[in-house]
Structures are given as C-alpha cells and as structure tokens.
Computed example of a mutant assay.
Amino acid sequence: MSQISEARKYPNPAPLGLAGFALTTWLLSMVNAGWYPGGAVNLVLACALAFGGTAQMIAGVMELPRGNTFGATAFISYGAFWWSFALFVLFLHDNVPAGFVGWYLCLWGVFTFYMWLGTFRSPKALQAIFLALWITFFLLAAGEWTGSAALHTAGGYMGLLTAVLAFYLSAAEIMIEAYGHAVLPIGQASARMVQAPAH
C-alpha cells in the first residue's frame, strides 16, 4: 500500500471575510459620514445579517482547520459585531442611553486595538486595516459620549478608509490565489520576522 498521502489543501477564507467586512462597513460609513440619511441603515442591516455577519462567521470557522487563531478570532468576532449591530437597531435600541452605546463602540475599539497589536508580524495592508478600524471605533464612541456631529462624521470617513483597505486586501488575496503570486502589493513583513498568520 502506498505510503504517500496527498496533502489536504484548505481554501483561503480571507477574501470572503474581508469582502463581507468591507462592503458592510462602507455602507454604514456612508451613513455615518452624512452622505445618506438614517433611513439608509435599513439596507445596511440586511447586509450586516447576510454578508457582514454570516459570511464573516463562515470565514472564521474556515480558519479553524487551518490553525489560524488570529483569522478565526477576527472574522468570528466582527461577524458577531454585525449581527449584534443589526439586532440592536432592529429590536433593542429603545431607551438605551447614548453613553451606553458609546461604551459598546469603545469596547470594540479596545478589542480592535489589541488585535492590531497582533498584526505587527503580518503584511502592512492588514496592519493598516486594524489601525484605521480602532480609530474608527474610538471616534464613533467619542461622538456618542459628547454628542459631537463632527466626531461622528470623522468616524464615518475613517470607516470609509477602513473599508477601502479591506477591499484592497481582499482583492490582493484573490489575485494571489488566482495567479499564484502577489499582483497587488500588500507590504509583506520582513523576512527576518517569524511569520504570523496574515488573515
């Protein structure tokens, strides 16, 4: 009997997870930036449940057999963020103080900040996404606490930047899978550094 076993190839779920995150973040950030009125959030909620939430959850579960702790934690957590956001706006927002919403956003900022610290051995494109995202959360939290429209708008624009960066890395990952090499530069970590999971 042959002793040669064929290595199992696990698909890379990062393009899916990043795309779900990017598209939903872009839609919500357009509202936060003041491009569209609050009623536009209804479409954001649909996307948050179907793509931002569910697709990221699927991507996170796909990271588990690949042994990617960072990727699983990130995708499952932000998938849960979108589900919780949609549930809050749809059913649970009545009588919740703005200051408490600020804490919700702030704590997501804290989570994102230490996830950003975990990207320092990963490509610079991934570092940039998490940097922009924790700044987004803190700006939005400060906007809730202070009632400042300017901070809320700034959070919206930072969210738009976050979405662009996530779309970029998703596209870069797709092209690596399609062509077998990097087409879009993602700022690979130094070869002197021990490589950590990049998704």
Rank of each mutant, 00 (worst) to 15 (best):
A33S: 15
L151S: 06
M158N: 00
Y157N: 10
L45S: 03
L27V: 15
M193V: 02
I174K: 05
A150Q: 07
A128L: 04
G67N: 11
N32M: 08
P197Q: 14
L151G: 07
H181P: 07
G180R: 14
A80P: 03
F21Q: 01
S29Q: 01
G102N: 11
A46I: 14
T146Y: 14
A80N: 04
N32F: 09
G71C: 05
V44Y: 14
L139I: 02
S29P: 03
T54N: 15
R66F: 11
W145M: 06
F91Y: 08
N68D: 15
A132Q: 08
T73P: 00
I58N: 03
A7R: 11
P11M: 07
G52I: 09
L64T: 15
S29R: 09
I135C: 10
T153H: 03
G159Q: 13
L184Q: 07
A196Y: 08
T54S: 09
A132C: 06
G39T: 12
A22E: 15
L45Y: 03
P197H: 15
F120G: 02
A163F: 08
F120T: 07
V61D: 10
A22Y: 08
V89N: 12
L27Q: 10
T54I: 13
G99C: 10
G79L: 13
T162N: 12
A86Q: 01
E144Q: 14
L23C: 09
L18T: 02
L28E: 01
G102D: 05
W108H: 03
G20D: 00
W116L: 01
M62E: 08
M175K: 12
L90C: 06
L87I: 11
V183N: 05
V44R: 11
T25Y: 01
A72L: 11
